[in-house]
Nucleic acid binder design. Structure first.
Length: 722
RNA sequence: GCGCGGUUAGCUCAGUUGGUAGAGCAACCCGUUUACACCGGGAAGGUCGUAGGUUCGAGUCCUACACCGCGCACCA
């Protein structure tokens, strides 16, 4: 005969319980599927279920967005583990090249240190120290959030093993001529002093001036007079009647910024006849579209602006000036020369800025490394990387939830250009290419012999992230993990990195190992504050810290608030009131359990009494609910499941079944009868509900489970009651 | 300009193949009934953005429009 645990006599204390429970889980080592098999809680031949954690950047703390992803993934993982699957959730962190480097640069600036003063080696030491500290914070926070990650398999995108994976991947792509080095138009960030990819650009609308100048017999418009020095091609539409007297290739002489020049007429249908005067001049070195036109007609390309955003000698008297300073002066000069026609002060321009540094992008032609996304690959049935990215989603081998993001994905692939992968920053994977005179060598290891120097550049951080699903499992080695857990079951992440990351993972996995990286993609929305603001870094101290919330209301409460009412793809407004409400729910579970445990002390649980008609009906209702809810779990409808279980526990189990049992128990005492059926029902329903609720509120359910008579194992490895 | 999503009770949001609308919170009334006042009982609250259409029947399917949010492209 057991006695009631004293802890149950007080309200549930999440704070005092949660750390202790997490330690219990960690010490059990059940987060590691190998241990689960060893200890007999998982069958060796069980189906496997795996998720790789989207590695948080080592740039600081975990925020509510991370909390959300940890909660959703932990629910999936705990559910799978309780289903008896071989369940693996791989943790890791991301070196996040540019993001981390610029963060450390800013910190050093505060101390008055510039990275060039201390040199590459010393700077990298500082970055690594910072990254290590961030890593430790992140791991600690993830544990506080209850994440059942297998820490024995932790990975870092820039550790030795992942570096080998990167070198291997690069070398193979180089051999297949998918990686090439070339002079092409790239997005140069003068502030960050590096190239960035199309996806790292943020467009901002800014009000600026739009100038119209006389250009020989024409009038041309521009928002950027400082790029116009080298303009010696004037372009118009072949069907434009206003300019019918000029023919393609005609030369005209005219007076321009620094004196008389000769310009060539180009007729091309890319011109919008309705915009401005229907005539423009081009600057092939500093504009994507102009570059394309110059390539088409084999026109000269001249660099006007250097990589620091200053004018080159072609600008004559303006040489060395910053473009922003030069602009007004150039306009002034043109005005004096009576070439200025008009200025529109209300012109709204879309400015390309670098996501990390905030610098204004200056398109430049530069020698960089690229991945060719259109080249047909003989070893992959002559498909291109684009095809390899497109096909598995189109053929539904990869399912995206919610599925309307598939259209967004296809649209992105259709517009995809070659991916620029070299970066002029220090922190990251060094490009595995060596030069010696005119020789170029790419390999996993440095070439033998003297005189070789390695490329100074590092790789785009998404290159290593793209390998994540299999580099974490041991690739390029043929490991057992790789065989067992790849393709992974689900990739769960925010929809904002669909292109950055998901597309790149599909590309890398399809090309390098010939299989999809994951079967399902579950995209969650952004976490917002109660008044709908983005819970981003810009909010600073006003953003909710998930750890504060946990300290106040408990992890289980936060988890429920993040799941109920949150459907894939939609933003979540995190409201403290809701969290408080779910805190009450954990207490409700706690108190109901107390009642059940008190009333069933003398129940023979190994030989439960038969249920009467009424109670049997209730039991069938729960069985039906679980059937329904299990199906919804398979469909990733966690919000519905959490809500239904919540509702059943509170308003059927507690309000109806327990209340009914009280009457029966009192009656039986008065009439000297028995309430065996009622007691059996509340006992079995409680054990069932604790199991079903565990993936959602793991802490309080595990704590109660430990007080149940006749429970040997942790609840986390018990069976889900389907 | 092209595309995607949203518009449902005061607020936040569910609503699976079309079958006369749901939850949580808030507000209202009643109740200190021995698991829990971090509680229980009760009542109230919506012509599901607008206008058409398909259907025996539409929040759900189709068309158009409006407003909000987002993505992509162009902007000489």
């Amino acid at each position: 005969m057991s006695t009631i645990n004293e802890k149950l006599l007080k309200p549930y204390d999440a704070k005092a319980t949660e750390n202790r429970i997490y330690k219990l889980w960690e010490e059990s080592e059940f987060f590691n599927p190998d241990v689960c098999i060893e200890k007999g809680v998982t069958k060796a031949d069980a189906e496997s279920f795996s998720i790789v954690l989207p590695p948080p950047n080592v740039t600081g703390n975990l925020h509510t967005g991370h909390a959300l992803m940890l909660v959703i993934q932990d629910i999936m993982i705990r559910y799978a583990r309780m289903q008896g699957k071989k369940t693996l959730w791989v943790p890791g962190t991301d070196h996040a090249a540019i993001a981390t480097q610029s963060k450390v640069e800013k910190l050093l600036e505060k101390e008055g240190i510039r990275k060039n003063d201390i040199g590459r080696e010393e700077f990298l030491k500082r970055v690594e120290k910072f990254a290590q500290d961030s890593h430790d914070t992140i791991v600690n926070q993830a544990k506080k959030m209850g994440a059942s990650l297998d820490w024995s398999r932790e990975a870092f995108t820039l550790d030795e093993k992942r570096n080998l994976a990167v070198r291997t991947a690069f070398t193979q792509m180089y051999k297949d001529e998918l990686i090439y080095r070339g002079n092409r138009m790239v997005n140069w960030d003068p502030k960050g002093q590096t190239v960035i990819s199309d996806d790292e650009i943020i467009y901002e609308e800014r009000k600026g001036k739009f100038y119209t100048f006389k250009y020989g017999p024409f009038e041309i418009g521009t928002a950027r007079p400082e790029t116009k020095f080298g303009d010696k091609y004037v372009v118009m539409h072949p069907d434009d009647k206003r300019y019918a007297s000029w023919k393609h290739g005609d030369k005209i002489k005219l007076e321009w910024i620094n004196g008389p020049i000769e310009a060539t007429i180009i007729k091309d249908p890319m011109i919008d006849m309705g915009f401005g005067t229907g005539v423009m001049t081009i600057t092939p070195w500093h504009s994507h579209e102009d570059f394309a036109l110059a390539e088409k007609y084999k026109l000269d390309k001249e660099q006007i602006i250097d990589k620091f955003g200053k004018l080159l000698p072609i600008a004559a008297e303006f040489v060395g000036m910053k473009i922003t300073d030069a602009r007004e002066k150039i306009v002034e000069k043109l005005k004096e020369k009576e070439l200025l026609v008009s200025v529109d002060e209300n012109y709204v321009n879309r400015i390309a800025t670098a996501e990390r540094s905030g610098g204004i992008i200056e398109p430049q032609i530069m020698l960089q490394w690229f991945i060719d996304v259109n080249k047909k690959i003989p070893t992959r049935e002559n498909k291109s990387l684009k095809d390899l990215m497109l096909e598995p989603v189109r053929d539904e081998k990869i399912k995206i939830i919610p599925n309307h993001f598939e259209k967004v994905y296809f649209n992105w692939i259709e517009n995809l250009h070659d991916w620029c992968i070299s970066r002029q920053i220090w922190y990251g994977h060094r490009i595995p290419v060596w030069y010696k005179d005119k020789e170029i060598y790419s390999g996993i290891e440095a070439p033998k012999g003297a005189g070789w120097t390695q490329d100074e550049d590092t790789l785009d951080t998404w290159f290593s992230s793209g390998l994540w699903t299999f580099s974490t499992l041991g690739w390029p080695e043929k490991t057992k993990d790789l065989e067992t857990y790849h393709p992974t079951s689900v990739l769960e992440t925010g929809h904002d990195i669909l292109f950055f990351w998901i597309a790149r993972m599909i590309l890398m996995s399809q090309y390098l190992i010939g299989e999809i990286p994951f079967k399902n993609v579950y995209l969650h929305g952004m976490v917002r504050t109660a008044d709908g603001k983005k819970m981003s870094k810009s909010l600073g101290d006003k953003a909710i810290d998930p750890l504060d919330i946990i300290a106040k209301y408990g992890n289980d409460a936060l988890r429920m608030a993040m799941v109920v009412g949150n459907t894939p793809g939609n933003d979540l407004k995190l409201n403290e009131n809701d969290i408080r409400g779910y805190g009450k729910f954990t207490n409700k579970v706690w108190n109901a359990s107390r009642f059940v445990l008190e009333q069933t002390k003398d129940l023979d649980i190994k030989n439960l009494p038969k249920l009467d008609e009424e109670d049997a009906l209730s039991e069938r209702e729960l069985v039906d609910l679980l059937k329904e809810v299990s199906k919804e779990m398979e469909e990733f409808r966690f919000s519905l499941v959490a809500e239904k279980l919540y509702h059943y526990f509170w308003h059927t189990f507690a309000d109806v079944i327990i209340e009914r049992s009280k009457k029966k128990i009192i009656e039986s005492e008065l009439q000297n009868g028995n309430a065996d059926s009622a007691k059996a029902l509340i006992y079995t329903q409680l054990t069932t509900l604790l199991r079903a609720l565990h993936p959602f509120i793991p802490f309080v359910t595990e704590e109660i489970w430990s007080m149940m008579p006749d429970t040997n194992n942790l609840l986390m490895v018990e069976k889900w009651p389907s």
